[in-house]
């Protein structure tokens, strides 16, 4: 299956993408092409434009220049085969919605305005929740979940969409060990089905272990390729530019875990 797909267009190709935020250039001339059936990390220091890149690819923020192709076509044609998982901080966790309804949103794009989820849609949502060990929580309001459980609900939503390409904004940020394991297991399953996963990732310690491919970003593309080739001291230096930014990274990491603990206790 994956052998034959060599001839097919790649799941994602980005050509000369440039983006601005309030007239300041955030990303300049970024180009890369992603292979099918791999897990890919987008790595870089804070403010490097990782989330911006992901949002630009998904058409959530206007881009200045450049083109993005999904399986050789424009996003509008491939919306439903591309699933997006937003950053956890961008979600209103107090919103009155139950776990199952969030996951059913993944089926939603397949339905017309007047259609309601069918028995099959419910089955798909159920399976997605079971895959992430969240079925028992299906009737909980999302505010009553821990950080890791919340992340798993959003992954189940993406899974229920039955996409071929998954774009995730920091799925590992501030999750517990069980969730981390569940995500890695999910990646394995998706990859064996020939699906492609692209994540913004923060933790340099785990990037080589969790991902097949790495894209180093710091306002420009530093390097992109298989982890064993591009995960070098030279690329890290070019991306993070010395110790200072690494230190910043660590403090933010600490802040995030603190934030998460605060969320878990209430």
């Amino acid at each position: 299956m994956t052998k034959n797909s060599r001839s097919l267009p790649p799941p994602l190709s980005v050509e000369h993408l440039s983006m601005r935020y309030h007239h300041k250039p955030v990303l300049t001339d970024v180009s890369f092409t992603i292979p099918e059936g791999k897990s890919i990390a987008i790595v870089g220091p804070n403010g490097a434009g990782k989330s911006t890149l992901l949002k630009g690819i998904m058409g959530l923020i206007p881009t200045m220049e450049g083109e993005v192709h999904f399986f050789g076509e424009s996003l509008t044609k491939k919306r439903l085969s591309t699933a997006y998982v937003p950053q956890r901080e961008e979600i209103d966790w107090d919103f009155p919605i139950k776990v199952l309804d969030v996951v059913l949103m993944g089926r939603h794009g397949h339905l017309k305005l007047w259609q309601r989820p069918s028995a099959i849609d419910y089955q798909i949502a159920e399976q997605a929740l079971k895959d992430l060990q969240m079925w028992d929580f299906k009737d909980r309001q999302i505010s009553q979940l821990s950080g890791g459980q919340q992340q798993r609900v959003f992954l189940a939503r993406a899974l229920a969409q039955q996409a071929n390409l998954y774009l995730m904004d920091e799925p590992f940020a501030g999750v517990d060990v069980a969730t981390e394991k569940a995500i890695i297991e999910l990646f394995k399953n998706l990859k064996t089905q020939g699906k492609t996963i692209i994540c913004v990732h923060h933790d340099l310690n785990t990037v080589g272990e969790y991902f097949d491919w790495i894209i180093f970003i710091n306002a420009r593309l530093v390097a992109a390729g298989p982890a064993e080739e591009v995960l070098t001291k030279d690329n890290l230096n070019k991306t993070y530019g010395g110790r200072l930014s690494l230190l910043n990274d660590l403090t933010e990491e600490m802040y995030r875990t603190k934030l998460n603990q605060a969320h878990d206790t209430d």
Binding site: G59, R79, T82, Y84, P86, I97, H108, Q161
Partner: peptide, 18 residues
């Protein structure tokens, strides 16, 4: 369902083609 999605997470709604 559409109103639920756009109220919950506008970006997610956009990514679903709404």
């Amino acid at each position: 369902k559409r109103l639920e999605t756009i109220s919950f997470h506008p970006n997610l709604a956009v990514s679903l083609g709404i």
